[in-house]
């Protein structure tokens, strides 16, 4: 059983967070909330998302898995304004999700979850941690996009840097001390990432929220932040690129 009511913007955040990596996702439903893990086809990025029942206006559920076609979900969300409440109910016999938005009822067939695996989250030990305001990070990305298709994330002592090196131009974001919410970087770390992936991930966070980056050298970055007013949480893992000589 799954019956819930929530604001369209919460559902949209989830969709934005996941649809950049996969076309279909398996949502794991429990009495306490939803969770979802997905890896993109290139195995470069992973999302691990959870949304507690407090994020919903109403929530009633038992344990079950739902396979969702994210393109269809996107179409349904286009019918709603961000503050609109959406009713969602799982019809087990028809294997459908029924959405009610205002006077519209929209039934959506679910995808068979039999062939959808559960990705295992790799156990990484990342020495450095930086907590930064999302808007600062988003500015750095904006500056980098004009310059290169990849960026280096560097943490060292009291400073965090985002560096984009193009063939002719460079962009550089440097934050230190009180410009960061928190930094713990006992050893210098540096890894290179695809800007394309990093950018889409960082757009999911609200500009005024904090983002936690866990970093190592030539190691994946772990990006963590809250969604839905702290009632949900997203963890992204992004594999590094090989530094070209």
């Amino acid at each position: 059983m799954f019956k819930a009511k929530l604001k369209a913007e919460v559902l949209k955040t989830i969709l934005d967070a996941v649809a950049t990596l996969v076309d279909e996702a398996k949502i794991h439903v429990t009495p306490e909330g939803l969770s979802l893990k997905a890896v993109d086809p290139a195995h470069v990025a992973m999302v691990d998302l959870s949304l507690g029942k407090k994020a919903f206006a109403e929530y009633k559920a038992t344990d079950l898995d739902m396979g969702v076609d994210l393109d269809k979900l996107k179409d349904i969300l286009k019918l709603a304004g961000s503050q609109d409440l959406i009713d969602i109910e799982y019809k087990e016999d028809a294997h459908k999700l029924v959405f009610k938005l205002g006077h519209i009822t929209r039934r959506m067939s679910l995808v068979d979850t039999a062939n959808m695996g559960d990705p295992k989250v790799p156990n990484l030990s990342l020495p450095n941690q930086v907590v930064v305001l999302a808007s600062e990070l988003q500015q750095g990305i904006k500056a980098s996009e004009a310059v290169s298709d990849h960026i280096a994330l560097v943490a060292d002592g009291k400073a965090f840097e985002l560096v984009a090196e193009g063939d002719t131009d460079q962009a550089h974001l440097r934050l230190e001390g009180s410009e960061l919410i928190k930094i713990q970087a006992p050893q210098k770390s540096r890894s290179l990432f695809s800007l394309d992936y990093f950018s889409t991930m960082s757009k999911v966070v609200k500009a005024t929220d904090a983002v936690t980056l866990n970093l190592g050298t030539d190691f994946p970055v772990k990006i963590e932040f809250d969604i839905a007013d702290g009632n949900g949480h997203i963890i992204y893992l992004l594999a590094p690129r090989i530094e070209s000589e």
């Binding site: 290139a42 195995h43 470069v44 298709d149």
Partner: peptide
């Protein structure tokens, strides 16, 4: 060939312990 360049520079999460 930018896609080739990207593909060659790519590492996957699998090489860090994921299945």
């Amino acid at each position: 060939a930018p896609l080739l360049k990207q593909t060659l520079a790519r590492r996957t999460l699998d090489s860090f312990g994921a299945p």
